[in-house]
């Protein structure tokens, strides 16, 4: 391993402040530079390590950019057909109710071909965690328009911008599933700054803990960038995302468990 280091005297095991989780494999991820998928994988691996779930976690990987996810996180995986991850996860969770089962899906997978599976899994209140990466585009196939593409946003199949009169309106999946009675915890986060990464990690940790209660589907959306699909540098893509994606997909919790919000109002603490 080739390395470049700062002050050498400080580099001692007892001074370690942060290292990559061991559950994240040494394989170099195939994602483009700056992709939000990689950041989300990394925090997911950290959480699985911290919560001690390596033996109990079963992930369902989707079709899309994150199709090779099973190569990067060292837990049990099942690959699902395009969009069918919630259906596969339902089966796994019902057969192995003690395991922590989650799906990891992009917007083309979850919000286009898999809309029915997603909505019905959430409506049935399956005890799974759905992680939804929303970058407003079909990243893997070359930046085509997705159901989540913003109005007026350019993509390779909407070169003059999405015209909502002929191409329809973008779908806010997270708002949609928050209205269903089966969901227990629904939130929307992002991973482009250290503060947002911390918030997302906190939200995912909550979702993992709620999952242990078996009270319903947890749904965590991560608004992500797609530097290659948007044809920008990673830092510009992050700025563009802040400017354009966040007004349309505002960050924050959509639905929190009643008990938790009750406790918060009693103690006056806002998490």
């Amino acid at each position: 391993m080739k390395e470049v280091t700062g002050i050498k005297e400080i580099i001692k095991p007892e001074n370690l402040a942060y290292r990559k989780s061991n559950i994240l494999t040494d394989e170099i991820m195939h994602y483009c530079p700056g992709c939000g998928h990689s950041t989300t994988h990394r925090i997911l691996a950290e959480l699985i390590e911290e919560e001690g779930l390596q033996q109990d976690a079963i992930g369902v990987s989707p079709v899309g950019c994150s199709v090779f996810l099973y190569n990067y996180i060292d837990i049990d995986w099942q690959e699902a057909a395009h969009g069918r991850a919630p259906a596969v996860a339902t089966a796994i969770k019902r057969l192995l109710p003690d395991k922590f089962v989650f799906t990891y899906q992009g917007d083309g997978d979850l919000a286009a071909i898999g809309t029915a599976e997603t909505i019905h899994a959430c409506n049935r209140g399956e005890n799974i965690l759905i992680i939804f990466i929303n970058n407003g585009i079909y990243g893997m196939t070359g930046g085509q328009m997705a159901p989540t593409t913003l109005p007026g946003m350019k993509s390779s199949t909407s070169p003059f911008g999405r015209d909502v009169r002929s191409m329809g309106n973008p779908i806010k999946m997270t708002d949609l599933v928050a209205t269903l009675p089966g969901t227990y915890y629904v939130t929307r986060q992002s991973v482009h700054t250290p503060a947002n990464v911390k918030k997302t990690k906190k939200a995912l940790r909550k979702a993992i803990q709620y999952q242990k209660l078996n009270k319903g589907t947890c749904f965590v959306e991560v608004v992500s960038n797609c530097p290659s699909g948007w044809k920008m540098t990673p830092t510009k893509a992050n700025a563009w995302m802040e400017e354009n994606m966040f007004p349309f997909y505002p960050l924050g919790d959509m639905k929190t468990p009643v008990e938790v919000s009750d406790q918060q109002s009693k103690t006056g603490k806002n998490d």
Binding site: I10, I11, K12, N15, L16, A17, Y18, R19, K20, S21, L24, I28, M29, Y31, P33, G34, C35, G36, H37, S38, T39, R42, V191, H192, T193, P194, V197, K198
Partner: peptide
């Protein structure tokens, strides 16, 4: 550790004293 927390690829290890 801001750099390491935001790094997509887990490239950076941080030491502190």
């Amino acid at each position: 550790a801001s750099c390491a927390i935001v790094c997509p690829d887990g490239v950076i290890t941080v030491y502190k004293t």
